[in-house]
């Protein structure tokens, strides 16, 4: 165990190596490590955020779908209601129209009856006059007996 200059030589090279390592090796490697660590942390955070956003989007989608379904159901219900209303309306319309037509026909019939009766009445009076003139064998002046005939007609 003889100590000699080797000791100093080793100490000097040690110092130089450490200096070199400190200057050119350690900072870039550690820097890259830290950067990567930050990058990975960022990536994980992003992934988490993405997952959260997706969840939110899914919730939103579900909500929208539900809304749309409700709206569709409402529209269908409304349409059904409206359809029923239209049917009811047309039913009532048809019914009233029928009624109206029936009434008009009835009125016409009544009118016809009145007219016929009127015609019949005049005819009855003239027949009566003719019959009477034949029986009496003479001419009866209708004008002279108009008042009597009118009364008669009134009675029929």
């Amino acid at each position: 165990m003889n100590l000699n200059l080797t000791l100093l030589g080793q100490a000097i090279s040690f110092a130089i190596f450490v200096w070199f390592c400190m200057k050119y090796v350690w900072p870039p490697v550690l820097g890259a490590l830290n950067e990567r660590q930050a990058k990975i942390a960022q990536g994980l955070a992003d992934a988490e955020q993405g997952a959260q956003r997706r969840e939110e989007a899914e919730e939103e989608i579900a909500q929208l779908v539900n809304e749309a379904k409700a709206q569709a159901a409402e529209i269908v219900a409304q349409a059904q209601k409206r359809g029923n209303e239209i049917i009811e309306e047309s039913k009532t319309g048809a019914r009233s129209e029928g009624e109206r037509l029936k009434q008009a026909a009835q009125a016409e019939i009544d009118q016809e009856v009145v007219t016929a009766r009127e015609a019949l009445r005049t005819q009855v009076s003239s027949i009566a006059v003719q019959g009477a003139s034949r029986i009496l064998g003479s001419e009866i002046d209708p004008a002279a007996h108009a008042k009597v005939l009118d009364d008669l007609i009134e009675q029929i």
Binding site: M1, L3, T6, L7, Q10, F14, A15
Partner: peptide, 10 residues
């Protein structure tokens, strides 16, 4: 021993 002592003395 010079080598190890050189380092440890540093």
């Amino acid at each position: 021993v010079n080598v190890t002592l050189g380092m440890s003395l540093s």
